[in-house]
């Protein structure tokens, strides 16, 4: 129960330069609720389905097999870990794509709840992200046989995995902070997001290694721009290196720019979200 001193104040305007910190505090205060939301999504996902957990790995596996066959026919260069490369690419990409897609519609889908009870609305985006991270962890179990097959031992590179997951989540949430608010006013946004995701799926090194882009087919001067406008290229490569221990082959300053850019998107997004959500929910 609320103590004597917790006075809620709702003013028209609020300064929100510290938005990410406030969000973190809100998430911490409502961690019980976040846990419930993630558990709910998991339960609903596996309720009434015979294969249950299998479905969350079947789709990436099927895609991997398809792209593997396609690549074995079309491409002459030899990637020693090709199935692993493709599978990790697809899993990392779907973490990002699903955070962004479900985040975009999260306010709209929960309109009846939003109109009944107040809690910080960024929790909807956080809980979707939490759910996708749990899903990714479960899906990552299927690469264990591949790791054994290639005799890949866990090395210190494995530390890249949590970093990459954190950065992918931040990038997805940062964008979802914008799209979720815009979606309340114009329902077109979710379709724009879906199309953009489909296009960038092919433009990102998801089912091919980054070396196919950096390896000489694309003029040198464009590679820097490519890496900057497509943070996912760096993050997917990080996930792959975490398991294969291969060098990243990305200039250090480019990695730095990507990380800073991702944090900036998250930061500006969180300010935008916190300033706009009170007005946006009126459109639900």
């Amino acid at each position: 129960m609320g103590g004597e001193n917790d006075v809620l104040e709702f003013k028209a305007e609020l300064p929100f330069l510290t938005a990410p910190l406030r969000m973190a505090k809100n998430a911490l205060n409502h961690r019980q609720l976040l846990k419930h939301f993630v558990a709910r999504d998991l339960k609903i996902r596996y309720h009434n389905s015979i294969i249950g957990y299998g479905w969350s790995v079947l789709e990436p596996l099927a895609l991997t097999v398809t792209f593997y066959i396609l690549f074995s026919i079309l491409s002459e260069d030899q990637d020693p870990f090709r199935p692993l490369t493709i599978l990790l690419g697809i899993l990392s990409w779907s973490l990002f794509a699903k955070i962004l897609a479900t985040g975009t519609t999260s306010l709209q889908r929960n309109s009846s709840l939003i109109q009944r009870v107040y809690f910080p609305r960024e929790l909807f985006i956080f809980s979707k992200t939490g759910f996708q991270i749990v899903q990714l962890m479960l899906s990552l179990l299927v690469i264990i046989p591949l790791l054994i097959h290639y005799q890949l031992q866990p090395t210190s590179s494995l530390l890249l995995l949590p970093c990459a997951i954190g950065l992918i989540s931040m990038f997805g949430m940062g964008l979802a902070f914008f799209t979720s608010i815009l979606q309340t006013k114009a329902r077109d946004i979710e379709h724009i997001v879906a199309i953009s995701l489909r296009i960038s799926f092919y433009l990102s090194p998801v089912f091919y290694p980054l070396e196919m882009i950096t390896g000489g087919r694309v003029p040198e001067q464009y590679i820097g721009y490519y890496l900057i406008i497509n943070p996912m290229a760096t993050f997917i490569t990080m996930v792959r290196s975490a398991f294969t221990d291969a060098p990243l082959n990305i200039p250090q300053e480019n990695i730095l720019i990507t990380v800073v850019l991702t944090m900036a998107i998250f930061w500006i997004g969180s300010i935008f979200f916190m300033r706009r959500e009170r007005k946006a929910v009126k459109f639900l």
């Binding site: 709702f10 003013k11 028209a12 009870v117 107040y118 007005k279 929910v281």
Partner: peptide, 18 residues
Amino acid sequence: AGIYAPDEGEIKINGRPT
């Protein structure tokens, strides 16, 4: 209940509304 924030003016609630 805190669902809509006022566009002008101020509201103070000392406790948790349901």
